[in-house]
Design a protein around this nucleic acid. Structure first.
Length: 856
DNA sequence: GAGCACTGC
């Protein structure tokens, strides 16, 4: 720090103390804090019927309406279609079970009609019995699209418009009315609703669909519901699952009855690797023949951790496969399961195209790289590369093609569609005309290493349940064939189910939600889960929440924690938003928070990835920040949108218009919520909280405030920079980051929002920040008496400077913290009026960052 | 020196 800046900061701080410290003693009491919190953000749309007569009248109206619609010719056709569904056969049994039991588990395979028919049976029954006005049926779905499409389907089966008696509600979008008696919503929406309405007092029937997927929200909801049922004897709960693990849920609810419904899909023949090798005569080469580079490293990595592959290594090929040809046995001997043999995939596609009937082929692969490489291989293939005969389409969540119609459309009659997809095609995207599925048997799967506090994303064998689901994708329109590129004995040894998400993911947001729903202490609550998470994972989450000031020492919510409960965000990102609103960087904070919370708007095109990289880098300019790149891209999109050329803009800059629009909507939602908790005044608009929105040093400081303790050190190693984190040591910048390939950085630290272990431990998105940003907006400062330096992050980071500078920084930080604490307790406080000197001093210091270049 | 499963408030 130059002495000039030191003097100016000191002066500013002195003026601040004059006004601030004196006022501080008259701060608000904690009871005032509570009052400033909002009690409700959501509107209540159901009509309430206090008047019994009005209620009866409405029930009669509903019945008359239902009866008259049933009489129409269109409805009769619908009815005969519905009667063909397997669910129809259990209608009476189901309705009786709903009457007689508070909880019921229904299992049914794809196509049995459970999702569309069961909620509808209840609705019809209630309306017919003149209980229409009093019933309020909710059916949760794990995904937004299914909530909308199922609601639309049922409305059309009932011959009414969507939003009348049947509606839906997903984040930022709803079609419902006072008349709505059956509402489809995402599980997340219901969990939010539970904050306002902990006993779901208005709900008569709750159906929770797709519970076999074992998503985090669904597992969480089920714990709450099991505790809630005794208090709500009139509430009926129906859990809907795919056949296989229904008993698990029945046991969880005290051996509640289970109803099974037959599936209704076409038969799908299964062929395993050994049969495929016999048919294609494809020869698998031993990995040792073509190993170079890091494939040996990969092989070692996998074979040590993968029991399935190891199991197959032990198999005596000649006796196990004695009826197969020598060529097949040699291939099976060479096969390891460590890495997918793309030549084998190609040979299988080739075989189908030459020998099998019409129909689309769906290939399940693990990721971008495999899709891209296979696409190239097919293009180069003399037979399959004929683009007038074969329409080959990549399908990956981050590819710009993900929403293109040609994936769903039937190709011209002389063409065969071949879709190369990830797991996205397993449940999120359904391609109806698929007749052939090729299953590589693996998927990238997140796991959480609690010891190293590390999220991992590694390819692993799928479960039998998943394999079954993939196979089912081939039988939607006619009988199909599923080609499994692994031996049958590997399939038989696959785990029955995937680990539930609650065991595979960091838990901080869940822990915050537990407190916000007032469900008691975190660890005892989570121990009631169907499969409780590891104690260390819970401990890590609680410690993080303490570090960022959301939980106090007793694991209760701090005032900041209370505010964060109203924001549907990961606690770190929520904190960033609040800090952005406090420090007049609201616009960038809203944009960055919405991108981090939702998804990256940058798409990864298959052919033009260098151009895509360059586009992202140009948005980042020289900021050394992926977050700034996001921000600039969003702002440029808004400009393009104003001049009506947003479509071209997205295409030219490799951005997803759908993601950007969602971000824009989320920004508005966050702004409204910040207004509800008093940090901003909605009427004044975002721009009135954006004085420093274009000050990139301030924006980076806000990022630091939100993302801490996600900090890494940049250490100069000769002509390059190496990066170190507290928990796992050396890490790498992800190659997709704008900071990848930069050798030297102007500032000594990076903050990041995601650290994931894939082929290495990668920091996916990063922003280069100064030591001042960390000192003022990072974690608590601890002076080290022996070295005379200041420490942070449990002594991992230390800062040294002259005694007077360190003292000055500590004083400034102490004042800043006091001011912030008051602001968080009284969100309406004008910190620029009350703490002018402190804030100005902090800004001054942040702007002096270029004085201290990287010194490590 | 070389990579990016998928949902959701």
């Amino acid at each position: 720090m130059s002495s000039e800046i030191e003097r100016r900061v000191e002066n500013l701080l002195a003026t601040a103390k004059g006004t601030e410290v004196v006022n501080n003693s008259s701060g608000p009491s904690s009871s005032e804090t509570k009052q400033s919190l909002p009690d409700s953000a959501s509107s209540k749309t159901e009509a309430s019927f206090d008047d019994t007569a009005a209620k009866e009248k409405f029930s009669i109206e509903l019945k008359n309406l239902q009866d008259s619609r049933k009489a129409s010719p269109n409805a009769k056709a619908m009815q005969s279609f519905r009667e063909k569904l397997p669910a129809y056969k259990v209608k009476d049994e189901f309705l009786k079970a709903v009457r007689d039991n508070q909880v019921l588990v229904v299992s049914g395979e794809t196509g049995c009609g459970k999702t569309t028919q069961l909620p509808q049976f209840i609705l019809e029954e209630e309306i017919s019995n003149l209980r229409g006005a009093g019933c309020n049926i909710i059916c949760t779905q794990p995904r937004r699209i299914s909530a909308i499409s199922v609601a639309a389907r049922i409305a059309s089966e009932r011959g009414e418009n969507l939003g009348e008696t049947v509606g839906y509600q997903i984040r930022l979008e709803a079609k419902r009315s006072a008349q709505t008696r059956l509402l489809f919503c995402t599980t997340g929406v219901l969990l939010r609703r539970l904050i306002q309405e902990p006993d779901l007092g208005d709900v008569s029937h709750l159906l929770v669909d797709e519970i076999h997927e074992r998503g985090l929200n669904e597992d969480f909801l089920i714990i709450i519901l099991r505790d809630l049922l005794p208090q709500r004897p009139n509430l009926r709960l129906i859990l809907m699952s795919a056949t296989i693990n229904a008993d698990l849920f029945s046991k969880y609810f005290g051996n509640t009855p289970v109803i099974h419904i037959q599936g209704l899909t076409f038969p799908v023949v299964e062929r395993f690797l050994e049969d495929i090798l016999e048919k294609t005569h494809y020869k698998i080469k031993s990995e040792y023949d073509n190993m170079h580079g890091n494939s040996r490293r990969r092989r070692q990595q996998y074979s040590r951790t993968d029991p399935l592959t190891e199991m197959f290594e032990e198999v005596d090929i000649d006796s196990q496969y004695k009826n197969y040809s020598i060529s097949t046995r040699q291939s099976l001997d060479a096969w390891t399961g460590v890495q997918l043999d793309l030549g084998l995939v190609e040979a299988t596609i080739d075989h189908i195209c030459r020998n099998e009937g019409d129909g689309a082929i769906l290939v399940f692969l693990t990721g971008w790289d495999e899709i891209s490489k296979l696409l190239e291989k097919i293009k180069a293939n003399a037979f399959l590369g004929n683009s007038s005969k074969f329409l080959v389409l990549p399908l990956h969540g981050s590819m710009p093609t993900v929403n293109q119609r040609e994936i769903f459309d039937r190709p011209p009659s002389n063409m065969r569609k071949i879709v190369l997809a990830t797991n996205i095609a397993e449940s999120s995207i359904t391609i109806d005309d698929v007749v052939y599925v090729i299953d590589c048997g693996k998927a990238k799967e997140t796991s959480y290493d609690a010891l190293n506090k590390l999220a991992c994303l590694l390819p692993s064998w799928i479960s039998k349940a998943s394999a079954h689901q993939r196979r089912g994708r081939a039988g939607r329109v006619q009988p199909g064939v599923c080609y499994r590129l692994y031996p049958k004995i590997v399939h038989d040894a696959m785990p029955q189910y995937q680990l539930p998400e609650i065991l595979r993911t960091p838990l901080q947001e869940l822990c915050l939600n537990i407190k916000s729903l007032q469900l008691g202490a975190v660890a005892p609550f989570l121990s009631k889960a169907l499969q409780p998470p590891d104690a260390l994972s819970v401990q890590n989450a609680i410690e993080l929440l303490k570090t960022i000031g959301v939980f106090d020492e007793r694991e209760e919510l701090t005032p900041l924690g209370h505010h964060l409960c109203t924001l549907p965000l990961d606690p770190n990102i929520g904190k960033m938003l609040i800090m952005g609103s406090i420090f007049q960087c609201l616009d960038p904070a809203l944009t960055i928070a919405s991108a981090l919370a939702h998804r990256d708007p940058f798409v990864l095109p298959i052919n033009r990835k260098e151009e895509a990289d360059a586009a992202k880098r140009s948005f980042a300019d020289d900021s050394c920040s992926d977050h700034i790149a996001l921000l600039k891209a969003f702002e440029a999109w808004k400009d393009a949108k104003r001049s009506g050329r947003d479509r071209a803009f997205c295409w030219e800059n490799f951005l997803s218009p759908i993601t950007l629009q969602m971000m824009d909507d989320m920004r508005n939602q966050f702004f409204d919520l910040l207004s509800d908790i008093g940090f901003v005044n909605k009427a004044k608009g975002i721009k009135s909280y954006n004085k420093y929105g274009h000050d990139l040093e301030m924006v980076c400081a806000i990022l630091c405030a939100g993302l801490y303790p996600n900090v890494i050190q940049c250490k100069r190693r000769g002509k390059r920079t190496a990066f170190y984190s507290k928990d796992v040591g050396k890490v790498d910048i992800h190659p997709s980051s704008v900071n990848a390939g930069i050798h030297l950085f102007p500032l000594p630290y990076m903050v990041y929002s995601e650290k994931v272990k894939t082929t290495s431990i990668y920091i996916r998105d990063s922003t280069n920040i100064s030591d001042y940003a960390l000192l003022l907006f990072g974690g608590g400062l601890t002076p080290n008496k022996t070295t005379g330096s200041i420490e942070m992050l449990g002594g991992y980071l230390h800062f040294s400077a002259s005694k007077s500078v360190l003292q000055l920084i500590q004083n400034l930080r102490a004042e800043l913290d006091k001011l912030l604490q008051r602001k968080i307790e009284v969100p309406g406080l004008d910190i620029y009026a009350e703490g002018k000197g402190v804030v100005s001093a902090a800004i001054e210091l942040l702007h002096s960052q270029n004085v201290s270049a990287m010194k490590n």
